[in-house]
Simulated assay, not measured.
Amino acid sequence: MRIISTFMLILSFSMISSSIGLAKAMKYNHDSITIEEVKKEVDFHVLVPEKIPSEWSLEIKTYDHNGEDMGTIRLHYMDSTDENVMLGIEERKVSEKEFRQLEEEFLDRNKINVNGVEAYYQEFANNGRKLNGKRMSGGLLTWIQGETYLQMDSSILSKDEMVEMARTVK
């Protein structure tokens, strides 16, 4: 009887551990390339938010940038129905020249501290208006973390929600 109780306890613990591990793993959709695969192919540090709602899934798109294969990536975090992009993040390596150009472009935007660097927020022009019965919000949050250029966008999340997620990008 004691052996059966011990076995049941070990089996229960094993099942709980497995479900916790699965809950932390990112769900990919549309046969997307994975973060690990992207990291092997690009010449910049791929950064991802650490705090994403568990019901969201991820689809990664890759693009050429300045003639480089997979020079730019876009992370599309989709809602549980896989119908709405909740959050998009574009990433690519930034050169010194691009960095200076971006600094000039950002002069008229709202500055926010994200992970110890200046980020710039620009609200979408349709912010606050209704589209298909839903109130639009969000905008663009842009920053350079190390040598990686990031531009986060959402028409669903608020500025505060986007900034909160940006602060978890590692």
Results as ranks from 00 to 15, higher is better:
Leu150Asp: 03
Gly88Gln: 09
Ile144Arg: 02
Ser18Trp: 15
Met26Trp: 14
Arg129Asp: 10
Arg109Gly: 14
Ser18Ala: 15
Glu83Ile: 13
Val94Glu: 10
Lys39His: 02
Gln151Val: 15
Ser14Glu: 07
Lys39Arg: 02
Gly67Ile: 05
Asn127Arg: 06
Ala25Gln: 06
Lys61Tyr: 14
Ala125Met: 07
Glu103Gln: 10
Val46Ser: 04
Tyr28Val: 00
Tyr121Gly: 02
Gly146Gln: 11
Gly71Tyr: 01
Gly133His: 04
Ile73Ser: 00
Leu58Lys: 00
Glu118Trp: 10
Met1Val: 11
Asn66Glu: 13
Gln101Glu: 15
Trp56Arg: 07
Tyr121Met: 01
Glu91Arg: 01
Lys27Met: 02
Met78Glu: 10
Lys51Gln: 06
Glu90Gly: 11
Lys39Thr: 01
Gly146Ala: 11
Glu90His: 09
Glu123Cys: 02
Ser95Asp: 01
Gly88Arg: 07
Met162Trp: 06
Ile3Thr: 07
His30Phe: 12
Leu9His: 09
Leu140His: 15
Asn110Gly: 14
Gln122Lys: 12
Asn84Trp: 09
Ser154Cys: 07
Met70Leu: 05
Gln151Trp: 14
Gly138Val: 02
Glu123Trp: 08
Tyr121Gln: 00
Met86Ala: 04
Leu87Lys: 02
Gly133Leu: 06
Ile156Asp: 02
Asn66Lys: 14
Val85His: 05
Glu37Met: 06
Gly67Val: 04
Leu140Phe: 13
Pro53His: 05
Gly67Cys: 11
Thr142Gly: 07
Gly21Tyr: 11
Ser155Asn: 15
Glu118Leu: 04
Ser95Arg: 00
Leu47Ser: 11
Leu131Ser: 12
Lys97Phe: 15
Glu83Met: 11
Thr81Gln: 10
Ile10Val: 03
Glu104Leu: 14
Asn29Cys: 14
Glu161Val: 04
Ile73Thr: 05
Glu91Pro: 00
Asp31Leu: 10
Ser54Asn: 09
Phe13Asp: 02
Leu157Pro: 07
Phe13Gln: 09
Asn84Asp: 12
Leu75Gly: 02
Leu47Phe: 05
Glu59Leu: 14
Ser158Ala: 05
Asp31Gln: 09
Pro49Leu: 03
Lys93Gln: 06
Arg74Gly: 15
Ser137Trp: 12
Val163Ser: 06
Pro49Val: 03
His76Cys: 14
Asp69Pro: 10
Gly139Ser: 09
Glu105Gln: 12
Asp79Tyr: 04
Asn127Lys: 11
Ile35Asp: 03
Phe44Pro: 02
Ser137Thr: 13
His65Ser: 08
Tyr120Ser: 10
Leu87Asp: 00
Met8His: 15
Lys130Pro: 07
Glu41Gln: 12
Asn29Gly: 15
Ile52Arg: 01
Asp160Ser: 13
Thr81Pro: 08
His76Val: 12
Leu75Gln: 00
